[in-house]
Simulated scan of single mutants.
Amino acid sequence: MKIIKNWWKQLKSKKLLLAGVMVTVLVIAGTGVWMQKKSSNDTTEIQYEQARVTRDNIIVGFDSDGNINYSKVNLRFGVKGTISEILVTEGDEVQKGAVIAKLYDRDYQDQYQLALAKLSDSQEQEITNLLDSELRLMNLEAELERQRDLYDEMETIPEAYSANELKLKKLELAGKETEYEHLKRKYEIQKNKSISQDELSVKMALENLEETILYAPVSGTLLSLANKAGERVSDEQDFAVLHENDAVKASTRVIEYDVGQIKVGQKVYVTVEALPDQRFTGQVSKVNSLPVSDSTGLVNYEVEIDILDPSGELKDGMNCSVSFVIKEVTNCLIVPYRAIKIVEGKQVVNVIDENGNTIEKQIKAGFTDGTNVEILEGLNVNETVIYTRSR
């Protein structure tokens, strides 16, 4: 009997425990359902965004990374020597034809004077030779005339001479005529000779002397000087670098899929990492026809851009981003693209009026880049549009 009572107590205790567990599970499940419903109600609440009508540009295009490049001219002396004088310093603005530096020219002066002396001697000798050739030609011409007269005389009285004598005299006359023609041709060549070896030597010596002075071939800013006065330079060594006409360019590589959208003269915008608040305008000046392959195997083409409004802050080698403009609408009214709705076939937007009420306005939209849209009619600057926030 005692055993039965104990068994009954244990069974009763287990039932109570099971009932408690079931109640707890139901409470948790109910709480979860309530929270899910509350979350569902919260997410179904419509949220809105506002935007002011502003004036700006809408641009469609694509970007490419590149570098800023100065149009540079490397200057070097045409001969080797020692620098005697430098007339400019780095950063100077120089004009085309200005003297940059000079070499000591004593040796080149001596070479030029020596070449002139040799030319003078050779010219005197040439005149003497020419006079001698002219005299020989005149003597030969006189001899030829005498031979002709003699042969003509022999022909008039053939009975006084044998046939063999006439034949020999005719051959002698023909030989003399040939000799005369050769000497005459040689004399004409000698007389009309335009330049001699010595004249060429003078010309080269003068050019070497002139090469001791380094001139600016173009106008621009002097970027660097490689040597100082008193130092030696060679004709294979760059002495100075000149920023040609202060022109600034940008270069970039464009993949083959995009290069077909680029044309010479096309408008671009250039921004540099070092000057994030500035944007420069440029135009495409060159699109290379030969491809360049990179490490990934993609085919690229070099594109060169002239920057039309450069500033002194743009430095050679700066990293930049080049935006190629496919289409652009400037100084237009814009609103977010999502603000426009189509109601009964008409373009409309919701606008907050001066009393804070939301009203619907019909508008006419224009060009869009997928983010903003041009407003042609129906809105004014600083009006506020309201639209459903995207999820």
Rank of each mutant, 00 (worst) to 15 (best):
residue 351 V to G: 05
residue 358 T to D: 10
residue 118 K to M: 13
residue 284 V to N: 03
residue 310 P to V: 05
residue 317 G to S: 09
residue 344 E to M: 06
residue 364 K to M: 09
residue 321 S to A: 10
residue 248 V to E: 08
residue 73 V to Y: 07
residue 211 E to V: 00
residue 88 V to E: 02
residue 148 R to I: 12
residue 220 G to C: 02
residue 338 R to K: 13
residue 63 D to I: 05
residue 182 H to M: 11
residue 176 K to Y: 01
residue 159 E to T: 14
residue 283 Q to T: 07
residue 9 K to M: 08
residue 220 G to E: 07
residue 155 E to K: 15
residue 247 A to C: 00
residue 40 S to P: 05
residue 221 T to V: 08
residue 308 L to Y: 04
residue 52 R to E: 12
residue 332 C to I: 10
residue 281 T to N: 08
residue 385 V to D: 09
residue 267 K to D: 03
residue 322 V to Y: 07
residue 191 K to P: 00
residue 122 S to Q: 14
residue 34 W to Q: 09
residue 204 M to N: 14
residue 270 V to I: 15
residue 313 E to Y: 12
residue 75 L to P: 06
residue 306 D to S: 07
residue 256 E to I: 04
residue 69 N to V: 08
residue 33 V to A: 04
residue 376 L to V: 15
residue 248 V to I: 10
residue 142 A to F: 03
residue 334 I to H: 03
residue 9 K to V: 10
residue 79 V to K: 08
residue 338 R to C: 00
residue 291 P to M: 08
residue 100 I to G: 03
residue 94 V to T: 10
residue 116 L to S: 11
residue 303 V to N: 05
residue 16 L to C: 01
residue 196 S to G: 11
residue 91 G to I: 05
residue 227 N to H: 14
residue 16 L to H: 07
residue 164 N to Y: 11
residue 361 K to R: 11
residue 276 P to L: 05
residue 386 I to L: 04
residue 222 L to M: 12
residue 88 V to W: 02
residue 334 I to W: 01
residue 44 T to Q: 15
residue 235 D to Y: 12
residue 123 Q to T: 14
residue 111 Q to V: 09
residue 2 K to E: 14
residue 64 S to H: 01
residue 115 A to E: 07
residue 183 L to V: 02
residue 288 N to C: 01
residue 340 I to G: 07
residue 279 R to F: 01
residue 244 E to C: 03
residue 33 V to T: 07
residue 208 N to G: 11
residue 353 D to S: 06
residue 274 A to E: 14
residue 310 P to I: 01
residue 180 Y to E: 14
residue 45 E to P: 00
residue 107 D to I: 12
residue 303 V to S: 05
residue 306 D to Y: 01
residue 314 L to Q: 03
residue 335 V to D: 02
residue 254 V to D: 06
residue 14 K to T: 11
residue 188 E to Q: 15
residue 47 Q to I: 09
residue 276 P to Y: 08
residue 215 Y to E: 07
residue 167 K to S: 14
residue 296 T to N: 15
residue 127 I to F: 06
residue 19 A to E: 07
residue 305 I to P: 03
residue 293 S to M: 13
residue 323 S to K: 13
residue 346 K to W: 00
residue 253 R to A: 13
residue 384 T to S: 09
residue 151 Y to S: 09
residue 178 T to P: 01
residue 349 V to G: 07
residue 176 K to P: 08
residue 82 T to C: 03
residue 162 S to K: 03
residue 328 E to P: 03
residue 329 V to M: 04
residue 298 L to V: 09
residue 238 D to Y: 15
residue 47 Q to D: 11
residue 329 V to C: 05
residue 30 G to M: 07
residue 324 F to R: 02
residue 164 N to F: 04
residue 190 Q to K: 15
residue 76 R to H: 13
residue 126 E to C: 00
residue 80 K to H: 07
residue 44 T to W: 01
residue 247 A to L: 13
residue 147 Q to I: 02
residue 200 L to K: 12
residue 207 E to C: 00
residue 89 T to Y: 00
residue 59 I to G: 01
residue 360 E to H: 02
residue 232 R to T: 15
residue 39 S to K: 11
residue 238 D to Q: 10
residue 54 T to A: 05
residue 118 K to N: 15
residue 143 E to T: 10
residue 56 D to Y: 01
residue 131 L to M: 09
residue 270 V to R: 10
residue 275 L to S: 09
residue 301 Y to N: 06
residue 382 N to W: 00
residue 131 L to H: 06
residue 257 Y to I: 13
residue 99 V to H: 03
residue 154 M to H: 06
residue 227 N to C: 09
residue 35 M to R: 08
residue 22 M to D: 01
residue 120 S to C: 00
residue 200 L to M: 12
residue 152 D to M: 10
residue 66 G to M: 10
